[in-house]
């Protein structure tokens, strides 16, 4: 098969996986233990990473825009820039990219190792479906957990920006907070909270797809793990662009 044919074939397989996920979504009630466990793993294990990511992006955003705005004597605008920037764009994208690396690599390497050691075959052989037992719990967990994690990145980012502009540009903390919160309109929140749901869905499904299709021993597993992280990161940027350009204008 040529590269192009392989890609088309892969896309077809991926769509079949997604179709399978939707067809068996109801099975999640039989696999609560797995789903809760995956939620717990995503939530607790990614918390610190997201916290740090959000904090530093918020701080950097405040410093960079603050210096520009200071020359116009407009440091009061830092609050608005930071809060809109975090909630609409940077919060979801940073959280998405960090989670694509963390959750994506985890899913692909786990499922890939299971595939290579015939554990996936064993699941099927004993009358269980890998999609129901492994893929759906991971997808649901990502769908549920990405939103609160993004929210944490948003809030921590705004707080970081607030501290920096209080220290560096002497803005008043309560004024900053009030401006930050009141600048956010329904539409901003809607877009900012819808993104992580899409990101979560694609990170989970792409990483599970690459895990389940692993072949060729440890080299193959390494290659698929890289592919999962690369494809889901790239897709996050594309989806983000679509949201910013298309969805925003439609609303």
């Amino acid at each position: 098969m040529t590269r192009f044919q392989k890609m088309i074939f892969g896309l077809q397989e991926f769509s079949l996986l997604i179709k399978d996920i939707f067809a068996h979504l109801g099975s999640v009630k039989d696999n609560w233990t797995e789903t809760i466990q995956e939620m717990y793993l995503i939530g607790t294990k990614s918390f610190f990473l997201i916290f740090l990511g959000g904090l530093f992006i918020g701080i950097i955003l405040a410093i960079e825009t603050g210096h520009q705005l200071e020359t116009f004597g407009a440091t009061a605008w830092i609050a608005k820039t930071v809060s809109l920037g975090m909630v609409r764009e940077l919060g979801p994208v940073i959280a998405g990219l960090l989670l694509a690396a963390r959750t994506g690599a985890k899913n692909t390497s786990e499922l890939g190792a299971m595939q290579l050691s015939e554990q996936i075959d064993a699941l099927r052989a004993f009358g269980a479906s890998p999609v129901e037992k492994l893929v759906i719990p991971r997808t649901i967990a990502a769908l549920v957990m990405f939103l609160p994690l993004t929210l944490i990145a948003d809030i921590v980012g705004i707080l970081g920006g607030m501290l920096v502009s209080n220290q560096t540009f002497h803005s008043d903390i309560s004024v900053f907070w009030n401006t930050a919160v009141t600048s956010l309109k329904m539409k901003d929140l809607f877009v900012g909270f819808l993104k992580p749901i899409f990101f979560g869905f694609f990170i989970a499904t792409i990483s599970c797809y690459f895990g389940l299709t692993t072949k060729g021993g440890t080299t193959g597993l390494g290659k698929n793990t890289i592919n999962a992280v690369v494809y889901s990161s790239a897709l996050i940027l594309v989806i983000d662009f679509i949201f910013t350009k298309v969805v925003w204008e439609l609303l």
Binding site: S117, E118, Q119, D121, A122, A125, F126, G127
Partner: peptide, 19 residues
């Protein structure tokens, strides 16, 4: 197929235990 597999047990060559 799932019903059929519930009637058939298999011991894999490499065991395939869930680690």
């Amino acid at each position: 197929i799932l019903q059929l597999r519930k009637k058939v047990g298999i011991v894999f060559q490499g065991n395939a235990l869930f680690d």
